[in-house]
């Protein structure tokens, strides 16, 4: 437990120190949100709620993938060995997952505010939507962390990450889009219950498989 806390502390400290990476992600988010705004500023009435949700989830997915991809890529060569000596692989993957969840949730919430500001707010039941957003970010963090570790050890990490990540995350996105649609229609919490529970189940599954499989990658 203490090791996980220390690793998390180290991750956050590192992130605060390397402001460029975090700033880059924020800019990525703002840039893509602004492009979406400019594209639809010509015809505001073309931006139906469903287009809003498609744009929103696409931007969340892309930012989350580029954020999580660097969780193993950006590190220096010797750092792996140092961490290897300090903590068990299980502790490392859990710390990375928690950290990636915080990062992608922050980006998701940031995207939400950006969309409210620029593209309006079609969501009528906000509580289930917000819960769905958090669960989707958790799912992205749990499933993409392992893939980031795989991609970092292959030759073309930057191309490989989206190739591996997109198909795996589609099931999360399908559920998220369904929840968003129900929330746009204002159907309330009961209508999203099945989808939210399935999201929880997928998160548990992805987290557990990542936890079991990560030591095999880490060893190399």
């Amino acid at each position: 437990m203490l090791a996980i806390y220390n690793l998390l502390h180290y991750q956050f400290a590192l992130e605060v120190k390397r402001k460029a990476a975090l700033g880059g992600l924020a800019l990525y988010l703002c840039g893509s949100g602004f492009i979406a705004y400019l594209c639809f500023s010509l015809h505001r009435n073309q931006l139906t709620p469903l287009v809003w949700s498609a744009l929103f989830w696409l931007i969340v997915l892309f930012t989350a993938i580029s954020a999580i991809a660097k969780s193993f890529v950006g590190e220096k060569r010797g750092l792996d060995v140092y961490l290897y000596a300090l903590a068990s692989p299980q502790q490392i993957i859990i710390a990375k997952m928690i950290y990636n969840f915080c990062l992608s949730a922050a980006l998701g919430i940031g995207a939400l505010f950006l969309f409210f500001l620029l593209l309006g707010n079609p969501i009528t039941s906000s509580f289930p939507f917000f819960l769905g957003l958090l669960l989707t970010c958790l799912g992205l963090a749990t499933s993409l962390t392992l893939l980031a570790a795989i991609a970092a050890r292959a030759d073309h990490a930057s191309i490989l990450m989206p190739v591996l990540g997109f198909p795996i995350t589609i099931s999360l996105l399908l559920l998220a889009i369904k929840i968003t649609k129900n929330c746009i229609d204002g159907l309330g919490f009961e209508s999203c219950q099945d989808e939210l529970l399935t999201l929880v189940a997928i998160n548990c599954m992805a987290g557990a498989t990542g936890y079991v499989l990560f030591p095999y990658i880490w060893r190399s």
Binding site: L164, I168, A206, T209, G210, L213, Y216, I217
Partner: peptide, 11 residues
């Protein structure tokens, strides 16, 4: 690829 294969089947 073994790790990815197992993960992919679960996903």
């Amino acid at each position: 690829s073994a790790v990815y294969n197992i993960f992919a089947f679960v996903a």
